[in-house]
């Protein structure tokens, strides 16, 4: 699976009320209601564990995590 598939699976695995369908690569995950502050913490832990990278405090900007494309770009830049 691609990074985007992995992240999407993680983000939607426990979503029982996903009324809007899966987001596109450039759709805002925040605006789609897929991530919030709690899910964000879980996503960061997932990324660190799955890809063996460290997410630093200075990385914590919406631009790095708000879309599947952005998350993939961020992960690749840290590898």
């Amino acid at each position: 699976m691609s990074i985007q598939d992995d992240v999407l699976k993680f983000l939607t695995d426990d979503t029982t009320d996903n009324e809007t369908g899966n987001p596109g690569p450039d759709d805002s995950l925040l605006e789609a209601g897929i991530i919030d502050s709690v899910k964000m913490l879980e996503l960061i832990a997932f990324i660190e564990k799955t890809y063996g990278i460290k997410v630093a405090e200075e990385d914590l900007f919406p631009e790095n995590f708000d879309t599947l494309n952005a998350i993939e770009t961020f992960i690749n830049s840290k590898k």
């Binding site: 502050s37 964000m40 919406p62």
Partner: peptide, 12 residues
Amino acid sequence: ARTHKSVLMGFM
């Protein structure tokens, strides 16, 4: 928007 997004995503 960026201000509110940063907060909603729990960054600050």
